[in-house]
Design a protein around this nucleic acid. Structure first.
Lengths: 138, 138
DNA sequence: ATTCAAATCATCCTTTCGGGTGACGAGAAA
DNA sequence: TTTCTCGTCACCCGAAAGGATGATTTGAAT
């Protein structure tokens, strides 16, 4: 980051210097101040976009780190609860989850209740949101 | 997009004009051309970063799958239904959606019913999944 | 003017969810 | 051994969600 700022400042200084040189060498100072400004504006707009992309790329990288799946244990979520959470995220009903995990509907409901408490969610749709924010789900 | 370009050009023109005015009014033209350039550079760098973020935000949501979000109209989903769909995706209950959109609970239920039919989903959690698969939600 | 889609709201009814509580066995940890 | 967590299951009850159907209004298109 410091490198970027330094590079940035250097480019700016160089550009100013370059313009100065052109200015004093060819004496076109009065002819096209607008041209200069337009040039600088266009150049730095592009540079800004580039920087913006770089910044978002870093965010994507950090997002990918989160995408490498945070461990549910870090949020007091047990393995079984996490299984249920994943199935909820896939849009399954409690009954379908129960069938898929070979347990009773009541068991699934217990797990979901605990999940909602631990994720601070009131609904399963909210739980999905929370889980994704926490990097627990893709 | 055209609006953005127009706005952009307008801002640029205004800035140039402003500098011109300052230049001829206070006769400080020779004193600080670097200052002008720096100002313009900083301003347009910020503008570029802002534009870059705007551009990447729109592509960020779709992630690895597609570059742009699909339009809900392509799936016979009306604007209002899409609004409801988005709020569902944010984990809101029907009542909360009704409050946020200033309509009755029954209206929201009608929209959700139509959504489930159009998305071939049985539950709202499933609808979220389908919508994301179709590139309708981030 | 007529047609049509969208948005709105309603009623009735069923299913699913969610909260609260209690219980019991297995295994790990103290 | 005792304690504790985890996973399992049950019951009750209220809230939320979902299905089916019909009605009204408004705005846009024909």
């Amino acid at each position: 980051m410091k490198k970027t700022i330094l590079l940035y400042g250097t480019i700016l200084a160089l550009l100013v210097f370059l313009l100065k040189v052109i200015q004093y060498r060819y004496l076109i100072r009065d002819l096209s101040i607008e041209f200069y400004i337009g040039l600088v504006a266009a150049f730095f707009t592009g540079l800004g976009i580039w920087m913006g992309l770089k910044l978002t790329n870093q965010r994507k990288k950090s997002g990918l780190k989160a995408m490498t799946l945070n461990q549910p244990q870090q949020f007091d979520i047990s393995k079984r609860e996490f299984e249920v959470l994943q199935l909820i995220g896939q849009g399954l009903s409690n009954q379908e989850i129960a069938d898929k995990l070979f347990v009773s509907l009541n068991t699934v409901k217990t797990h979901t209740s605990n999940l909602f408490t631990k994720l601070d969610a009131k609904r399963r749709t909210q739980a999905i949101q929370r889980a994704k924010d926490l990097g627990l789900l893709g």
